[in-house]
Design a binder for these strands. Structure first.
Lengths: 252, 252
DNA sequence: ATCATAGTCGTCTCCCTGACGATAAACACG
DNA sequence: CGTGTTTATCGTCAGGGAGACGACTATGAT
């Protein structure tokens, strides 16, 4: 009996964000500390209600801007401006996922270059970048000795799904450039792959592969030595979005 | 201000289904004729409200069973029983997508072997299998001369997204076997790829590829001549879900 | 000057793929 | 009963891409 307007169960609809970046050779996600019940004091993914007049993508872009100050650029845009990549991830609607009421959350995945420091949210939430490995471990202690509690709600599952999406998508798309500043070197791009996949890649074969894929990288003419060593050529992301053949993720 | 229980905008949440199958060498989708406003008399994807106590996947499985009689098997199951593959596709929440109220639809993608005939839905809806190419063309006339109206709501977009998901996913997963009966020949599997991709594949190279990929196909010992010609070996789907290296979709 | 660090170019081999030839086993005809 | 048609299956060969790794280059640090 589809669409009987007189009798439909009301749901709350939220967007949650998996915002990923690469900091200090580690894949990190943005986490906010909850200030209220339930899960008060626990870390959670940023998110909030979808407003009555906005699209899901708009809601996600608004939350992203509130939490990080990042603009999301339109999907399909050349990805040059220092906006973040934003795409829908999946939707989570278990009846018990929020103990208070029926909430359906449309999770989004955002990829951003390394940012200076997390900005306080619109409502002065505490926010931080944390290695995903630390956020996903169940209990235990972080490297700084502080006790780690699992993420609130089903956010561990959402984060895991987002990380898996990012890991697989940089294989066959040029999405890894979304983790880089507008201009970057081949070595910086390689370190992105290494951080996201958690593997070491051969610098020579990687260089051959990415510079040999037409449309992936466009040289800007400049060079930099910000990584030390011999100066490296600077590149921008090219127009190609699909990599064919893909980058191969090493086994194991 | 996340999760203020006293003030959240209420949404209706539905599931819509993109149910795909291969019939007579063509990729077909299940469409139902709408019996009420809006879009009365137009074709639409099957779907319905999510009930207050059920998960999104449960709602999708229930709708699928109501429309087709198919059981969906759990994700990760060996896919042997004649259940259909069911996975979440994407969520559509444009404020204007339903003229009556704010509806967020969690679309799901189902892949099924060729079925005898579409069963009337629980409320006796008219349902039929139609080639996706016919459902996606805007206006014009179908092959049988009947005029074609675009699908209701944003269902053309949802269908297009589902088809694209299926097309890309059979590249790197063993999902194409979801279109086949429990036992099938290499030729039947090849015709699935050809129908979904709309290309012709070399039978010899295809045979070498699929039989050479460990875990993809398991011979059952039997043979069949139901396609004419020399008897062909019968196979079941193997346990492998990811194809590495993937099937390559020809250019163009 | 020497060393450490990165970047870049080459080479070699192996494996996969695409393009195709050839053979095998059924059925439909006359 | 041969002959043609259809589909399945095995083989061969050339080309491209990827992994492994050697060699050289251009910086800064000591």
């Amino acid at each position: 009996m589809p669409y009987d307007p007189s009798a439909f169960p009301p749901f709350a609809v939220t967007v949650d964000l998996v915002v990923l970046t690469v900091r200090r050779h580690a894949l990190c996600a943005l986490a906010v500390r909850r200030g209220e019940q339930p899960f008060q004091g626990r870390w959670a993914l940023p998110g909030g209600f979808v407003r009555p007049d906005e699209d899901l993508a708009q809601a996600a872009a608004r939350e992203l801007a509130e939490e990080t100050g990042l603009r999301a650029h339109d999907p399909g845009a050349p990805a040059q401006d220092n906006g973040a990549h934003l795409e829908q991830l999946a939707t989570y609607g278990d009846p018990k996922r929020d103990p208070r009421m029926r909430v359906v959350s449309v999770a989004h995945l955002a990829l951003a270059p390394d940012l200076p420091a997390p900005r306080a949210g619109g409502d002065a939430n505490i926010a931080r970048w944390a290695p995903v490995e630390e956020l996903l471990q169940q209990g235990g202690y972080a490297r700084d000795g502080e006790p780690v509690a699992p993420l609130a709600f089903d956010h561990a599952q959402i984060l895991a799904d987002g990380v898996e999406r990012a890991r697989s998508k940089i294989e066959y798309s040029s999405l890894a450039t979304a983790f880089c500043p507008p201009e970057f070197t081949v070595g910086e791009l390689r370190r992105v792959y290494e951080a996201v996949w958690g593997v070491a890649l051969d610098p020579r074969n990687f260089h051959r592969k990415v510079t040999g894929t037409p449309g992936f990288l466009v040289p800007t003419g400049g060079t930099t030595t910000r990584q030390g060593g011999r100066p490296a050529q600077l590149f921008r992301a090219g127009g190609a979005t699909l990599l064919n053949p893909p980058m191969l993720r090493p086994e194991v």
